[in-house]
Simulated assay, not measured.
Amino acid sequence: MNGTSAGDTSGVWLASTVLRLLEQRYGRGRVPSVRVLARHMKDANDGDSISHGHMHNILSGDAVNITDRTRAVLARFLGVPPSALMPAAETAAETDVETLAMRFSSLRPEELAAIEMAIHMVKNRDGQRDHTDRG
């Protein structure tokens, strides 16, 4: 096994996948803190665990690449094969949408408003260009 997976480029994809699996294990809205998760993981994996800090990075989407060891420990704890924690190449479009949705869910209202305004500006500019291109 190598240190990291070249296909695991979306920390947000990983975060949403791990959170979904944790919610299956604990129940929606009942996932414990990262410190408790690290302790549960250690108990369930005969002492093998990942740090609560690394778990925080995974769940926040900041862990873009994880090692094969981390993937194996998480997979064992979550009761899934390690491949379940690697985005599939054929689901790239789904992953992009999921990544975008996950990013948007973490934004403040004023940040969302700024994005919306930028989208409207681009749409209006492109609409004007379409009319001028037609002559």
Rank of each mutant, 00 (worst) to 15 (best):
R71F: 02
M41V: 01
D130H: 07
F77I: 03
D130Y: 11
L107V: 05
V36G: 08
A38D: 03
H54P: 04
H131R: 14
E90M: 06
G11R: 03
H54Q: 10
T17I: 09
S10G: 06
S106N: 10
R125F: 15
W13M: 06
M1K: 10
E94K: 13
G47D: 13
I58G: 03
Q128I: 08
M86D: 12
L78G: 02
L22K: 02
A101E: 01
R39L: 00
E90D: 11
P32R: 12
V64P: 00
N2Q: 15
G11S: 13
R76Q: 10
A93R: 15
R69I: 10
D48H: 12
G53H: 09
D126M: 07
L107M: 08
G127D: 13
D133H: 09
L107E: 04
A38N: 11
I115G: 00
S105G: 14
R125I: 13
D8R: 06
N65W: 05
M1L: 12
N65H: 03
D46T: 10
V36K: 15
M55F: 12
S16R: 04
M102K: 08
R28C: 10
L85A: 03
I119A: 06
M102C: 06
S10P: 02
G29M: 13
I50S: 13
P81F: 10
I66L: 12
T95N: 00
G27Q: 07
V34N: 12
P109C: 13
E90H: 12
A84P: 01
T4G: 05
H52G: 05
T99R: 12
R71I: 02
P82D: 08
T99Q: 12
M117S: 09
T91A: 07
H56F: 10
I66N: 07
V80L: 06
S60N: 05
P87A: 04
L14F: 02
D43W: 02
S105I: 09
S5W: 04
D43L: 07
T99F: 09
G47R: 15
G11N: 10
T132K: 09
T70A: 04
E116H: 06
A88N: 07
A44P: 07
R30L: 04
A38K: 12
V18D: 01
V34Y: 13
M117E: 01
M41Q: 02
N57P: 12
T17R: 07
G53Y: 07
L59Y: 14
L78T: 03
N2F: 15
V36I: 13
E94A: 14
D130K: 09
A93H: 15
R71Q: 02
G47H: 14
I66Q: 07
R25S: 07
T9V: 08
A6K: 13
P82T: 09
P81R: 01
A101F: 03
L22M: 00
H120G: 08
G53V: 08
E23D: 03
S33Y: 05
E111D: 00
L112P: 09
H52N: 11
R76S: 15
I66G: 09
N2K: 14
I50K: 14
F77D: 02
A15K: 01
R134H: 08
M102N: 04
V97D: 00
T4E: 04
G79Q: 02
S16L: 11
R134G: 05
